[in-house]
């Protein structure tokens, strides 16, 4: 009789295998016909424009909060004037990409898992196949492309809004000169920070969020309870993977770029 550990390992291996199969099939769908262009445009709008509010608010308040906190800490060293360095570097290298990804996991990842999951349990995915449509090309590929392209765009917006929020706090609460704040932001960043840490990470995070959500959604079973479970699994798995990927990407990028 197989032990609990053996069963767990088997099911984990199966999940990884199915995830890889889905990703490979989706990659193939990106470079071969048929391509459902209007679905891609629709998803770019849903994932991009649809997530703008949450990303703007998260970025703004995060930037303001870390500026207020950093101001207090820097005061201990009489270094309040360089608060912009800390805010800029934190937002662009870490907080912008990771917090945007976590927000997108909650908004996009859960939505995709719930949508595909309910399509799965109501036989709509089978109906697509019976009508001659490959569900991976129709449902997964547009979401994967949109998630991959829009996450970096949203991250850049979040970074900018966060740094602007930092400026508001540093100007009106910490009484730091505007010119000093912005030059401090610029001085605190290397070019590698912007294109390496700031832009490579969101591409990877966007890919993880959407592919994990699609994988979980497409493997949903067990009726409406199964849809709820799939949504939770998608959010938890994506969040953990985003944070883990952040650590490993940091290590890789630090080695390669600096």
């Amino acid at each position: 009789m197989p032990s609990f550990v053996e069963n767990w390992l088997k099911s984990a291996a199966l999940e990884v295998q199915e995830y890889v199969r889905l990703v490979v099939a989706a990659m193939r769908g990106v470079v071969s016909r048929p391509i459902y262009r209007h679905d891609i445009i629709e998803q770019l709008d849903v994932i991009g424009s649809g997530s703008l509010t949450v990303v703007l608010l998260t970025g703004l308040f995060t930037g303001m909060a870390i500026t207020a906190q950093s101001g207090l800490t820097l005061d201990q060293f009489g270094a309040r004037a360089v608060v912009g360095r800390l805010v800029g570097a934190s937002m662009i290298k870490e907080l912008g990409p990771v917090l945007t990804a976590l927000m997108l996991t909650g908004r996009i990842g859960s939505g995709i898992a719930a949508e595909l999951g309910s399509m799965m349990v109501t036989d709509q995915i089978n109906a697509l196949r019976a009508l001659g449509t490959d569900p991976i090309r129709k449902l997964v590929v547009p979401r994967m492309i949109a998630g991959f392209l829009m996450t970096p765009v949203l991250t850049v917006i979040s970074d900018f809004v966060g740094i602007t929020g930092g400026w508001i706090v540093s100007r009106f609460q910490l009484q730091v000169n505007t010119g000093l704040y912005w030059s401090s932001v610029r001085d605190g960043l290397y070019l590698q920070d912007v294109y390496g840490m700031g832009l490579v990470k969101p591409f990877v995070f966007g890919f993880i969020i959407v592919t994990v959500a699609c994988h979980v959604g497409m493997r949903t079973s067990g009726g409406t309870a199964g849809v709820g479970k799939a949504t939770t699994v998608a959010v938890v798995a994506s969040s953990v993977l985003v944070i883990a990927a952040d650590f490993f990407l940091n290590q890789i990028l630090l080695t390669l770029l600096y």
Partner: peptide, 8 residues
Amino acid sequence: FQEGALFD
């Protein structure tokens, strides 16, 4: 399909 499986 059993329940119609219309695309909602």
